[in-house]
């Protein structure tokens, strides 16, 4: 991940602007956390329903970012430059095309292994992850792809001091879009028939099948939902950092998984909460300690959470059956 998380100021010039600097990191961390949270939902849903880590989910996020980039460039070539329309088209396109990848992933790599040892599914997931990375690298080239800022400008606070806190329009867009998606998603899970089927499968796959729920279809739809949320995270990542390559899925995926574990794997609000926490921790760690070790921070948190609270913040305790 690029090292420019500390947008809007570096520790060097923050002397005397403790409050402002803190606020800026809070904004940056929240934005980053929203992205992680969206990816984490995919992990937590899949884990909740079939009990496996979809290791290739980070790659789905990366594909989402690439589809977004391609659509942006296409719209630019077509001359559609009215930003709200362009962003909307990109959003729909990336959700559509990326969810096909999510669906295929489940169909090809995970469904044949549903009754196999869990290790086998994890190995296929790693294999799929390697495959998708190299697939994108071969098709789109290995060099990093820069995209000029689509949404620029922002609100500026505390103008009276020398350290201006900025909340960019892009960050507002990311936060609002995430909240909207979360509302829609919560509605789908709580109120629709797919949501009910999804929750039933999460509790007991066999029982759900017995009462007439199409388990295969529900699992497929779970992957599709997870992939489309991850693709939106990919779009946000592309717009926020402005550079992507085929390798971004690995670290983002691991951090999002950490977020899912931190929030309590299987718990949907937990995934979002975990994402926000990881984003904040990463932003503050980079701002107040060292940027080099920010990835170590994420892993250290993962280890600590698993030791002291293996069920995460909002997870249900796992009863060990003999």
């Amino acid at each position: 991940m690029p090292a420019n998380v500390t947008r809007g100021g570096s520790p060097v010039n923050c002397k005397g602007f403790v409050m402002e600097y803190f606020l800026q990191q809070l904004i940056n961390g929240l934005t980053l956390g929203m992205i992680y949270g969206l990816i984490a939902i995919g992990y937590t849903m899949v884990y909740g329903i079939i009990g496996m880590i979809n290791f290739a989910h980070g790659e789905i996020f990366m594909i989402g970012a690439f589809v977004s980039l391609i659509t942006f460039l296409l719209l630019g070539a077509l001359g559609i430059t009215w930003i709200p329309l362009a962003v909307l088209v990109v959003l729909i396109a990336t959700m559509l095309f990326t969810s096909v990848y999510g669906w295929t992933l489940e169909r090809v790599a995970y469904r044949p292994l549903r009754d196999s040892p869990r290790l086998a599914a994890l190995i296929t997931a790693i294999g799929m992850s390697i495959f998708l990375q190299n697939y994108v690298q071969l098709l789109q080239g290995a060099r990093i792809k820069p995209l000029p800022p689509v949404i620029s400008g922002g609100f500026r606070f505390m103008k009276e001091s020398d350290f201006v806190v900025t909340l960019s329009y892009l960050q507002v867009f990311i936060i609002l879009l995430t909240i909207t998606l979360m509302l829609v998603f919560t509605y789908v899970i709580n109120r629709t028939s797919f949501g009910r089927a999804q929750r039933a499968c999460q509790q007991d796959l066999g029982m759900a099948a017995l009462i007439g729920i199409n388990v295969d279809r529900t699992i497929s739809l779970t992957f599709v939902t997870g992939a489309s949320l991850a693709s939106v995270a990919g779009l946000m990542f592309l717009m926020n950092y402005g550079v992507i390559d085929f390798y971004i899925g690995f670290l983002a995926g691991i951090k999002a998984f950490t977020a899912a574990v931190l929030g309590g794997i299987g718990s949907l609000p937990g995934a979002m909460l975990g994402g926000l926490l990881i984003g904040l921790i990463e932003a503050f760690w980079s701002a107040y300690f060292t940027v080099e070790y920010k990835d170590v921070a994420a892993f250290a948190i993962l280890v600590l959470v698993l030791i002291f609270r293996p069920t995460g913040l909002l997870g249900k305790p796992d009863i060990e059956k003999v």
């Binding site: 880590i53 994890l122 691991i254 080099e292 892993f299 993962l302 280890v303 698993l306 030791i307």
Partner: peptide
Amino acid sequence: FPVLRLRGDYLAIVTLGFGEMIRVILLN
């Protein structure tokens, strides 16, 4: 020591994190 209580997939992810930590430390 820290991962004694973990099992299966969790163990896999923590060991993965450990491997990456060693690499990041070697790098920095």
